[in-house]
């Protein structure tokens, strides 16, 4: 019924936890809705010098596939540049976990969560410093 990778992530979810969402170096993505049965919170900690994601964590309310999708997403974004992670596609996550068609929305939610986290970080940066670099990155994120 479930692929063994889904079971593995469900039984041993990676990077469960929370960062302080008011920390200027943290981006938070909160997607989904309780009424739909899925809510994902994915957070990234970014090195503001290099734009690299140094750490990531998640919490998810949802089925096993949703938990596995977000767990995989945190693994994949860690250590990568922000421009890089916004190109992660839901289809890659779905393929990695062999999600059946009825569970594809879980992987889409994970993709949305990554993008939302990056966007949140960018918004915070441009608000605090208004630096040009941030706007530049944001454009890239929006274009992806």
């Amino acid at each position: 019924m479930y692929h063994e990778r889904v079971l593995d992530h469900y039984n041993n979810p990676r990077n469960v936890g929370s960062f302080d969402k008011n920390d200027p170096n943290v981006g938070t993505g909160l997607v989904g809705a309780p009424a739909c049965g899925d809510v994902m919170k994915l957070q990234i900690r970014v090195d503001d010098e290099t734009g690299k994601i140094v750490d990531a964590c998640f919490k998810t309310f949802g089925c096993g596939s949703a938990i596995a999708s977000s767990s995989v997403a945190t693994e994949w974004v860690k250590g990568k540049q922000m421009e890089e992670v916004v190109t992660i596609k839901n289809t890659e996550i779905a393929k990695h976990l062999s999600l059946p068609p009825v569970k594809l929305h879980c992987s889409m939610l994970a993709e949305d969560a990554i993008k939302a986290a990056v966007k949140d970080y960018e918004a915070k940066r441009s608000k605090s410093s208004g630096s040009q670099e941030a706007t530049h990155l944001e454009e890239k994120a929006a274009g992806a």
Binding site: P13, V16, S18, L30, P34, A35, M40, K59, F61, H105
Partner: peptide
């Protein structure tokens, strides 16, 4: 519940119904 963002909000005293959720 340790995994649940909703439980975390509940413990932080945030009303889940007050949040504008993105329906899809």
């Amino acid at each position: 519940r340790e995994l649940s963002p909703l439980y975390e909000m509940y413990k932080d005293g945030i009303d889940i119904k007050s949040i504008q959720w993105s329906q899809h």
